Amino acid sequence: MLNVALLGAGRIGQVHAQSMTAGGHCTVVAVADVNAEAAQALAARIGAEARSVEAIIADPAIDAVLIATSTDTHSDLITRATAAGKAVLCEKPVDLSLDRALATLAAAEATGRPVMIGFNRRFDPNFAALKAAFDAGEIGDGELLSITSFDPAPPPVDYVKVSGGLFRDMMIHDFDMACWIFGGAPARVTAHGSSLVDPAIGDAGDVDTAAVTMVWEDGRIAVIKNSRRAGYGYDQRLELLGSQGLLSAANVLENTVQKITTAGAVSAKPLHFFLERYMRAYEIEWAAFLKGVTEGTAMPVTLREGVAALACAEAATRSLAQGTTVAITPDMLG
């Protein structure tokens, strides 16, 4: 059984702790966080020890680490953990800087240790079923992909200021989904964005409402729509038009009850936020990581794919700033 450690005891770290301790296929031996009290509390809850990051990385008995710390620490921790011989599952994105992410890619690949990036939406049963149907040829060649991802409410402005912006923080998931479904990075990206939800987000230099068009070399198109405000719930939909049909994945609703009367039809709202919507995906993601480590198979979401998603975010950021379409060049992909 693998000995694993969790780096980061904040909200997303606690989500991962639930998945890491649920299946009984590994032993979580340690938790680290810059907030010592948070690390101690989470460690006590899951039967682990609170240790420093340095102690965890230096411990040869720890086989793998899950990195759920702030984004600006990801590259350094991936590099240090792989150099110490550990397998790594790291939350998205790889970094806020594409250059640093590329350096991390080179360093980690040189060690030969497995690294997986936490794009949990790939493991959502609905999206995974759509991808499987597409790969099986059920709608022919993919031509037009539409991804809708709306949050119920914006995050605090203090978070926005350090998040790296909507494209790196929020839409990064959708960039990965588009590259995953179409099997690689696009040739060019065009972005539009506005601050319509909260003027303070615009004052912080970010947008809260955005649409991005991605075009592949062969002409395939993906359109991504993001908003920080959807008062009715967490809106997560995907639609793929192919040469022989259409695949779509609808929202997961609070319940399946539908009322139909002469006045019309009414159903429940979408689940409220990502914890409800994607908890099962986090569990499947962790199981997939453990399987890859124990069986020596390829990681289902590689570090190189994490860099590709970040390259799309970088291109979208440049596109919005410059008002032009930005090419994804080979040097952006490593």
Rank of each mutant, 00 (worst) to 15 (best):
D151G: 12
D151Y: 14
P152C: 15
P152D: 10
A153H: 14
A153K: 12
A153N: 13
P155G: 13
P156D: 09
P156C: 10
V157L: 01
D158I: 13
D158Q: 13
Y159H: 12
K161G: 06
V162I: 14
V162H: 08
S163N: 03
G164R: 02
G165A: 05
L166M: 13
R168P: 08
R168S: 13
R168T: 05
D169Y: 13
D169F: 15
M171S: 04
M171H: 05
H173E: 02
D174F: 01
D174G: 02
F175Q: 00
D176S: 01
D176Q: 04
C179K: 09
C179P: 10
C179R: 14
W180S: 15
I181N: 06
F182I: 01
G183M: 02
G183N: 05
P186N: 03
P186A: 03
R188V: 12
R188Q: 15
R188D: 15
R188W: 14
V189E: 14
V189N: 11
T190V: 08
A191E: 09
A191Y: 12
H192I: 07
G193N: 08
G193K: 07
S195D: 12
S195L: 03
S195P: 07
L196H: 10
D198W: 09
D198A: 09
P199I: 02
A200G: 01
A200P: 04
G202V: 02
D203E: 11
A204E: 00
G205Y: 03
D206V: 01
V207H: 01
V207L: 03
D208N: 03
T213E: 15
V215I: 11
W216G: 04
E217T: 14
E217D: 10
E217P: 10
D218P: 02
D218V: 09
G219P: 01
A222G: 10
V223K: 05
V223C: 09
I224F: 10
K225Q: 09
N226E: 09
